[in-house]
Design a protein around this nucleic acid. Sequence first.
DNA 1: CTCCAGGAAATAA
DNA 2: TTATTTCATGGA
Length: 271
Amino acid sequence: MIIENSNFILEHIASSGQCFRMNKTGDTQYSVIAKGRYLSLNQLNENEVKLSCTEEEFQEFWSEYFDLSYDYESIVKNLLAGEDEFLKKAAAYGYGLRILKQDIFEALITFIISQRKSIPAIKGCVEQICQRFGEKRVDMVSGTVYYTFPTPVKLAEAAKEELREAGLGYRDEYVRKTALAVVKGEIALQNLKALSYEEVLGEFMKLPGVGIKVANCAALYGLHRIDAFPIDVWIERILKEVYENKFDVNTYKGYAGIVQQYMFYYIRSLS
DNA sequence: CTCCAGGAAATAA
DNA sequence: TTATTTCATGGA
């Protein structure tokens, strides 16, 4: 089926570093694996994307996953009409980005893995743990073989040696212990939705390998708290060199996480 | 060879 | 409290 949307650019979303299981498979073709499902997408033009799923599956799952009911166009227009020169350029460059509504556990684990790794290296590790600990499936539409993201139980039971073989390095125990905490109910991921932003960060940061940055990523990409503003080395550089440490996130209250995504995507394009 | 990658935890000051 | 050091691994 075909989706019409003025802010749905697959290239930008796939290479924005928020999701590690969306890949380019052709000139205008992409694939994504989420919540056990496989989808292929084709960017027909600036305003149209063709999806391999049925209308029913789109309504039931993918529409929300891609946050298609949210008006990203008005945010881009706001930034373009604003005074902030850096954000003007960032929005003009990254228009079409969206904040995907990923699985909470997957967002948590993949961003624990992400620390001190390049995005290609993260994607490699994530694919490895999916192949080793996930479930093998076949997409009925294309016949593509794919692997689901591992369950908490699988990762909690994973052998340290195999996690090392997957390339996790010293993060092996972080992943295993966090998965175990989820299995034992020491953190109830589904209940986090009811908590405030600050409470959510507090809960995430009790977990091994989760500091302020990973907690914000899990909140933004796993719980869709678009007020979350993850500060990594790139954003840190912007705040210091572009804004001389005078950037106020409260200026963008209600959608700071989206602003952060434009910033991140734009600064990386410059080098 | 060195340096860095969507950082966090342990340790020192 | 804040500042420094260490932690695997792969690629430039």
